[in-house]
Design a protein around this nucleic acid. Structure first.
Length: 258
DNA sequence: ATGTCGCCGAGCCGGCGA
């Protein structure tokens, strides 16, 4: 089974690219972030035409998450339990026995911004919710834009970025606390090849110069980590005309068990 | 390094968030 995640930075703008991408990569499940579309305006038909069911949790202008799959999605839940949030950043569903969560972790803006403690609180709520999800179904995938580069080697210039949002010690500790709840960072276990950046700023020709960060992740619970086959960042999508600033991450796992 | 996008409300630009 192929599981993918992509922060599309506006589904409406990226829809044609996404349709083309579905045909090229053929994921079985795809988590989307920053759809920026109201539920009433969600382009359900475009997914149906490609053979995908889709569930979504959106709002105007900002945020918005969705999950598309080649088959029925059940037990759909929005948000993180016990963490009231006006922002649409979390959505979970079950597909072929696999529990999948599409996550758009708050950016945080800067360490002195009020959005920074919100980000840390959100991550703590995610870890708590992940424990509950695992208790219900040990086959769990957390996929999305985590807005955290876990290690210095996930940053093009760690010295320049030291201490800033996306790499700060508190964010990395929160990420490790989530991992410690029972996950493996799908591409994070890879070295060199395969462990590419997933986001490049639109400014300063960052993609052309490969000034990127690895902030989009697919976390696998233990039973799934044992079934990991391969994975990569699809840089081709970032090289497309009028791209999202994020590239998709896709992994293959041996699922369902034979 | 403040250079790019996408969103919105109200235009044909400016503020906001990433």
């Amino acid at each position: 089974m192929k599981v993918a995640t992509w922060n599309v930075n506006s589904l409406r703008v990226r829809l044609a690219q996404l349709e083309e991408w579905l045909g090229r990569l053929e994921p079985d499940v795809l988590c989307l972030q920053e759809t920026k579309v109201r539920d009433a305006d969600f382009p359900v038909q475009a997914f149906a035409d490609r053979g995908y069911e889709v569930v979504f949790h959106g709002q105007p202008s900002y945020n918005g998450v969705a999950i598309a799959a080649r088959g029925p999605l059940t037990d759909v839940t929005q948000g993180l339990g016990g963490f009231p949030d006006e922002q649409c950043r979390a959505l979970a569903a079950t597909f072929r026995g696999l529990r999948v969560a599409s996550l758009y972790v708050p950016n945080g803006t800067a360490l002195d911004s009020p959005r920074y403690p919100y980000k840390l609180a959100w991550l703590e709520a995610l870890t708590e919710q992940s424990r509950r999800w695992l208790a219900d179904n040990p086959a769990l995938v957390l996929a999305g834009d985590f807005n955290i580069a876990p290690e210095d080697r996930d940053v093009y210039d760690p010295v320049a970025w030291e201490g800033s949002v996306l790499v700060s010690a508190a964010e990395r500790a929160a990420f490790q606390a989530l991992i410690a709840a029972g996950f493996t960072d799908g591409l994070g276990v890879l070295a060199g090849e395969g462990r590419g950046y997933s986001w490049w700023d639109y400014r300063a020709a960052a993609f052309r110069r490969d000034l990127g960060l690895r902030i989009d992740h697919i976390l696998l619970s233990a039973p799934l980590a044992a079934r990991f086959v391969q994975g990569f960042v699809d840089r081709e999508a970032r090289a497309h005309a009028r791209p999202s600033d994020h590239a998709p991450v896709i992994i293959e796992i041996n699922w369902p068990p034979a």
